[in-house]
Amino acid sequence: MIHVKFFASVRERIGMGEISLPMPEGGATVADVLALAEGEAGVVLQGAHLLAAVNLRHVPFSDVVRDGDEVAFFPPVTGG
């Protein structure tokens, strides 16, 4: 399984905080995981400014995801 989390405005747009998805056969990138989550939610985040993290690290969307990974999507950060 892949554990997917959403934060802040991205969570509100997709309408859920987290979802677990079966690991696709043949592998998946971060971008693939987002597409799968969008399909589950029936929401497309097209055009949204998104950042991604895998296992608590910032990653590009082209990174490959492994079974058991935690993948998170969120808008640009605004702390401090």
Partner: peptide, 8 residues
């Protein structure tokens, strides 16, 4: 911190 720590 302002550009990398995940706060919103």
């Amino acid at each position: 911190l302002k550009t990398s720590a995940p706060f919103w």
